[in-house]
């Protein structure tokens, strides 16, 4: 089974019905699956901060949502995540490609690989790394942790999970 299918299944199990997305090539197939799901309102955005703030607004409509973005985009919206989501204690569940890992040989992803985790720790944004297919079942717990902690939660997907060896 493809990882994208398993992730989609778990998001359905959690009750996600809105996805705001901006593609990175690793998460593109997941976005395609969400777009094809008639039970999901898919909102393509022009900038990642739109995705996390759209999900934040949807929280108040009682709708469960997910922002699907790349690691570079996550770095661009940390200010909004801090000043909206930390300020008002609004949970937002983000699925993010973990770019810049040792097996990601794109030179323009290198900084993201070295600095993203320390940045999340500085903001006290919880995160969890999914590296294998059999770990995707953590999504319901991760989603609940996001709501309970009332802040951004980053679920990282690795290259090994999404692209294979």
């Amino acid at each position: 089974m493809e990882p994208y299918q398993r992730i989609h299944e778990e998001l359905t199990r959690v009750g996600v019905t809105l996805a705001a997305t901006l593609p990175d090539d690793w998460v593109g197939p997941l976005i395609g699956r969400l777009d094809a799901d008639p039970s999901v309102i898919h909102v393509p955005v022009a900038r990642e901060a739109e995705a996390v703030t759209i999900c934040s607004g949807a929280f108040f409509g009682g709708v469960r949502s997910v922002a699907v973005i790349g690691n570079t985009g996550l770095l661009t919206c940390t200010g909004e995540l801090a000043t909206l989501n930390l300020r008002h204690q609004i949970p937002v569940f983000c699925i993010v490609s973990m770019r810049g890992s040792i097996d990601d040989h794109r030179v323009y992803q290198e900084i993201q690989g070295r600095r993203t985790i320390p940045l999340l720790q500085a903001y006290d944004f919880p995160y969890h790394v999914v590296d294998r297919l059999d770990e995707i079942g953590c999504i319901p717990n991760a989603y609940e942790a996001c709501r309970l902690q009332k802040r951004p939660f980053i679920l990282f997907l690795t290259r090994r999970l999404l692209k294979g060896q």
Binding site: V43, T53, I54, S56, G57, G61, S65, T83, R87
Partner: peptide
């Protein structure tokens, strides 16, 4: 906070 993104928040609420 999040100057500029009240618009996106409102869109999420409306949807």
């Amino acid at each position: 906070g999040a100057m500029g993104f009240a618009a996106s928040f409102a869109l999420g609420l409306a949807l």
